[in-house]
Design a protein around this nucleic acid. Structure first.
Length: 153
DNA sequence: GCCAACGTTGGC
DNA sequence: GCCAACGTTGGC
């Protein structure tokens, strides 16, 4: 099993919206590195759901329920002239929520944790779909389940 | 609202 | 193939 982190702006598509829908087609990714990561996702992989821009934090856990297929929202775009023979290069996966974290793991806490200094979230702040190492994943999840810490929010 | 970092585009 | 200009993302 692999572990990932996906970003979404809460004002555009937040965790609560995701929970209400119960399932999301993760479309609109238009970055090759992020696309490559989508292609590697397998059913059952665990996905951290991160809110960017507004109160940046990991807020929930999701899982992959359908592997990558061509992004239907890309078909209208003038990406490829010969669309008849060459499909869009962009893909989607489908995700379902597993649980909300008891306490959001803020970007500030992630940055303050030495063991998380190498996560792509920090090193490559603009990447919207990134792999997470198992140890890092477990730590972030644990940080989100410990209601004790009082220093933030 | 500002700005730094990054990715993409297009001229040469 | 290089690089400047430009657009976008995302933290603060």
């Amino acid at each position: 099993m692999n572990y990932w982190l996906v970003k979404s702006e809460p004002d555009t598509y937040g965790w609560h919206h995701f929970m209400e829908q119960g399932r999301a087609v993760w479309d609109g990714v238009r970055n090759y590195q992020a696309r490559n990561n989508l292609r590697l996702m397998q059913v059952g992989d665990q996905v951290l759901f991160y809110h960017s821009v507004t109160n940046p934090a990991v807020v929930g856990l999701a899982t992959v329920v359908r592997e990558s297929y061509p992004d239907p929202t890309a078909l209208d775009e003038p990406v490829v002239a010969n669309a008849a023979t060459r499909p869009t290069p962009w893909v989607v996966v489908e995700l379902e929520p597993v649980m909300a974290l008891e306490k959001p793991v803020t970007l500030a806490r992630i940055k303050a944790e030495p063991m998380l200094a190498t996560v792509a979230l920090i090193k490559q702040s603009r990447l919207s779909v990134m792999p997470i190492k198992p140890d890092e994943f477990e730590l972030i999840l644990a940080m989100g389940q410990h209601a004790a810490k009082s220093e933030d929010r």
